[in-house]
């Protein structure tokens, strides 16, 4: 089955990352790189998003397209990237997500 993991960052996470020294930050990135390498066989595609202040939302109501600045939900958790998995079932996807060393929230959605 195919799933998408949606990675979400929180403000605390961003602050923690910002407070790190350059070498600490490199270590964090290295751990994320290891995770991608370890699960490469199951990861069919992945991508990272630019920070959420770059987001623009278009709302299509009636025949109008209303363009606003910012993400569609102003929440504490902001989606920062995606990875598409091809695995046997939800439990396998959960196990891979549970080992994710990056941002603190991961949503798992099956693909149609």
């Amino acid at each position: 089955m195919k799933y998408v993991l949606m990675f979400a960052e929180t403000e605390e996470f961003a602050q923690r990352l910002a407070a790190m020294s350059e070498s600490e930050r490199q270590e964090e990135f290295a751990r994320v790189g290891e995770w991608f390498a370890e699960h490469a066989a199951h990861i069919t595609h992945h991508t990272r998003l630019q920070p959420h202040h770059t987001a623009t939302t278009v709302r299509l109501t009636g025949d109008q397209a209303v363009v606003t600045d910012g993400p569609f939900v102003e929440g504490k958790e902001v989606v920062s990237g995606f990875a598409e998995l091809d695995v046997a079932d939800l439990d396998q996807a959960l196990a891979i997500a549970a080992a994710w060393p990056g941002c603190p929230v991961v949503e798992i959605r099956p693909l149609v």
Binding site: Y3, A88, D89, L90, D91, A93, P110
Partner: peptide, 14 residues
């Protein structure tokens, strides 16, 4: 059915 929850006894680790 839709999220692919498997019908099995979890592994020892889980």
């Amino acid at each position: 059915a839709e999220a692919g929850i498997p019908y099995r006894v979890p592994s020892d680790a889980e």
